[in-house]
């Protein structure tokens, strides 16, 4: 565990907590894409299938449980909670997430490190995570009206990706045989998707103004 990996995990954890705080305390999920949240639930479910069979550390297992639990509870809140679900921007959140899942599954079947059930699903989760933010970014673009918590949520998620890239660079130079092209390319693609959002986030921060995306 290096400082970049820890910082990445902590920003990831913070992003989830910010979103749960918004949903649980304010009882609102306005501006949050259910499509993206469903994709994350699928990402964690397929990636952490090994939770019972492979043990790395208590830290890893605990974090896996937190990410699984939080992603499914966010989906549950948005779909079934009687107050929260009424604040969901159903009509704007129309991204077809099947269009993301199918190509990711095909790609995982074609490009993977090992052709086993767990490994292909694990690779699928990497590809899907890379693009899972797209429905959220489209929803932001459409509603344009972004409250602080939603902005912070996406900012923290992007931060998590950035720290993971630093972690990979660090591990590449400090650990022999640490080469994972699939993870790196998927992670890089994912981080690049945030670039545009980050640009406008920093502009609004610099000018001390509310975050607004151009039409």
């Amino acid at each position: 565990m290096n400082i970049f990996r820890l910082a990445g995990d902590m920003t990831h954890l913070a992003s989830v907590l910010v979103l749960l705080l918004k949903i649980h305390t304010i009882k609102s999920c306005a501006g949050v894409s259910l499509k993206t949240q469903e994709l994350y639930a699928i990402v964690f479910a397929t990636r952490y299938l090994d939770i019972l069979t492979s043990f790395v550390s208590i830290y890893n297992t605990l974090m896996k449980l937190i990410f699984l639990g939080s992603s499914f509870s966010i989906v549950w809140y948005m779909k079934y909670h009687k107050t929260v679900r009424r604040t969901y921007d159903r009509d704007q959140d129309t991204f077809r997430h099947w269009f993301l899942m199918l190509p990711c599954l095909l790609l995982a079947l074609l490009i993977h490190e090992k052709f086993t059930f767990f490994e292909v699903l694990w690779t699928f989760s990497l590809y899907l995570e890379a693009v899972a933010i797209l429905p959220q970014l489209v929803l932001l673009q459409r509603t344009r009206n972004i409250d602080n918590l939603t902005g912070q949520y996406i900012f923290l998620l992007g931060g998590y990706r950035g720290f993971y890239i630093l972690n990979w660079i660090y591990r590449y130079f400090t650990e022999p045989h640490y080469v994972h092209w699939i993870t790196w390319i998927a992670g890089l693609v994912q981080t690049l998707l945030y670039a545009d959002f980050f640009y406008y986030y920093f502009l609004s921060w610099k000018n001390n103004k509310k975050l607004q995306l151009p039409a």
Binding site: R5, N60, Y178
Partner: peptide, 10 residues
């Protein structure tokens, strides 16, 4: 060891 390495991240 390689397999473990690739799955020790979250």
């Amino acid at each position: 060891a390689k397999e473990e390495e690739s799955h020790d991240e979250l």
